[in-house]
Amino acid sequence: MRKLLAEKGRLSQLLINDLKDGPTADTVVNHFGSLTAAYAAVGYQPTPRPAFGMNGRHWSEKAVLSGLRKLHVAHGCVSLRLIGSCPDLPSTCYIREHFGSLDEAMRKAGLPVLNHSDKMRAGWKRRKADGCDDYFAGVHWTDAKLLGALRELHEKHGYTTANLVDQNGITPSAYYYKKRFGSLTKARALAQLPLLTNSQMVSAGRRRSKEGTSIARKPRFAGQRPGMGYCSNDILAGLRRLAERRGVISARMINEDPDLPSSAAVVNHFGKLSTAYQLIGVVRLEGKPIRFGLPPQK
């Protein structure tokens, strides 16, 4: 950042993100808490900015901090969704631009700042308290309806497996049963269905396969990717084909390609996308919204 400041005479989020041999602005914020704190660490004092606004209305720093406190008092928490629907606050983009990060704004407002795991847990608790988890694909499912559907499934087929629950097209998924009751086995017990040992379930599955009565696994919805295992070399070959076909590459393009795993799976394999890009010869491009692609032909 000092080299960038010496070269450009100023620092900004855009300049940091465009720096080839440096971290992104998000990484800087993760290290220092905010861009403002990072600027102070390298001795840079940005030009004072006027009050910021949105849709013709302007907010001072005091007004934003006051709005965050009111939001926390009213709901017991502050979330992106609550900020977006609050008339007393600008958008989260404007708050990040002014304070460097939403967490920094929360700290200045004297509000508790949660880590990512605690935020996720709090969100799940709020969803459950609001009854959001009672819905699957827009249909309200009570415990009684779920258990009744499981009994009907058993009466029709003579068994209830996770695959059958997923593929029958009527009940919610097996994962939904696990989330509601703790496990599919507990749901069977509550539905007063016969409980089998693991050996009995395996034997019954083999018998159904020989008889040809097993239900084949299929997508639950149009466009769903099959559950596939990918070798690292296969992923790299697929990424290379995508880059050669499109000229550029991004996480969105990877997610949209039916022959590739998700971008998150690529990250799990290689640590980060840029490492995978480096292995297939993809480089950062100058002056492009999508910053990675094959090097220009000489």
Rank of each mutant, 00 (worst) to 15 (best):
M201D: 10
L14I: 13
A129L: 13
L5H: 07
D143P: 10
E61I: 10
L146N: 00
F136E: 05
G205T: 08
D143K: 11
R127W: 15
P194R: 00
D134V: 08
S12F: 06
V266Y: 00
L82F: 06
R69P: 08
V113L: 10
V266P: 01
Q200F: 02
R188K: 15
H140R: 15
V283H: 05
S183C: 09
T161F: 03
Q167I: 02
S85D: 15
L196N: 01
G84C: 07
D118W: 00
P90N: 03
Y177P: 05
A37M: 12
K108D: 03
I16L: 15
E286Q: 14
A25K: 04
T275M: 10
C86R: 07
P112T: 05
R121S: 09
G182D: 03
N30M: 14
Q45S: 13
E97K: 06
F181I: 03
G227D: 11
N163M: 14
R207S: 14
G53M: 10
S274N: 15
G43R: 03
L193W: 02
A109R: 00
L114E: 04
P295R: 01
Q13W: 09
A189D: 12
Y94D: 08
Y159S: 05
A237Q: 09
Y94E: 11
Q13M: 12
S101V: 03
L71R: 02
T171C: 13
T185C: 07
G84T: 08
G43K: 03
R188I: 06
L273F: 10
S203Q: 14
L239F: 08
G287W: 11
L65Y: 02
G205P: 12
P48C: 00
F181L: 04
L260I: 08
P261Q: 02
A41I: 10
V248Y: 10
H72V: 06
G223F: 04
N115P: 13
L4K: 03
G123M: 05
D88Y: 11
V139C: 09
Y94R: 09
K3G: 11
C231A: 11
K125V: 13
I249R: 00
P261G: 01
M201L: 15
P112C: 08
G281H: 09
S263G: 12
G43F: 04
K119E: 15
L68K: 03
T27K: 14
D21V: 06
Y176C: 04
Y177Q: 01
C132H: 14
R207M: 12
R206Y: 13
Q192M: 10
Y177H: 06
H75F: 14
H98C: 08
C93Q: 13
L71W: 03
L150R: 00
N168E: 14
L82R: 09
P87I: 01
S263C: 13
P112M: 06
P87F: 00
F221T: 08
R151V: 11
F99M: 01
Q192K: 12
L273D: 05
A25M: 09
